[in-house]
Design a protein around this nucleic acid. Structure first.
Lengths: 91, 91
DNA sequence: CGAACATATCGAAGTATTTCGATGTTTCTA
DNA sequence: TAGAAACATCGAAATACTTCGATATGTTCG
C-alpha cells in the first residue's frame, strides 16, 4: 500500500462522525442505509453524504445502489491492507 | 481504545511528512534523532518540531532527552492497540 | 405524468491544520 | 562564562476540512 493511500485512509478515519458510521456499520451486520445514519449522526443530509463519500473514496466502505437508496458495506479487505501497512512500521 | 484516541492517532497518520518520519524510524532500527529528520523531510526546523510533537502527543513515538538532543523511538504498543481497534470494526 | 422521496452537488462560512520566520530555552564546549 | 548547537514556542499566513442551506439528479408510486 503506497503512502498516498495510507494518508487517505488515515484521513478518513480521523473524524468522530466517520468513526461513528464505521462502528454502526459493524453493529448492523456490515450493512447500512444512508437514511439509517441520520439516527445516530447529528448532522444535516449534505454533511452525511459528504462523510459517506470520503469513506467511499478511501474504499473503506462499498456503496451499492438499490433503487433510490444506497446500501453501504464495510470493506474488510481495505482494513486488512491498512493493518498490514501498520505492521510494517514495527520492526 | 476510545474514539478520541483513535481520532488522534488517525490524524497523526494522515500526513505525508509524518508517515515519512515513521518509515525512516523503522529503517533506523526504531531510533531517530531530530537532526536526522532534516535529511529526508524538506521542511524547516519549527515544522519538523511540530510534526514530531503531534506524533508524540498521539503516543506513536516516545521522546527521550539525551543532553541537548532528542531521541525518538517507535511505540509498538500503541500501534498494536490501534490495530486492535481496527480489527473490532470488522465483523 | 407529477409529486414525493433519497441522495448528490454547489457555494459559502467557520474552523482546523500546515508552514514559516523570529525568538526563547536548555545544554554543551572552548 | 560566552557562544554555538539542538530543540521548542509564538504569531501570522496559506491551505484544507467541516458544515450548512439551496438546489439538482435520479427513482418510485399514485
Amino acid at each position: 500500500m503506497d503512502a498516498k493511500k495510507v494518508e487517505k485512509i488515515s484521513k478518513a478515519l480521523a473524524d468522530p462522525n466517520r468513526l461513528l458510521i464505521l462502528k454502526e456499520l459493524r453493529k448492523n451486520k456490515n450493512c447500512l442505509y444512508c437514511t439509517d445514519v441520520y439516527e445516530f449522526v447529528d448532522l444535516t443530509q449534505p454533511s452525511i453524504s459528504h462523510h459517506l463519500k470520503l469513506l467511499t473514496d478511501a474504499e473503506l466502505i462499498i456503496p451499492t445502489k438499490e433503487g433510490r437508496n444506497m446500501k453501504y458495506t464495510l470493506n474488510n479487505k481495505m482494513i486488512d491492507q491498512y493493518v498490514n501497512f501498520l505492521q510494517t512500521l514495527k520492526s
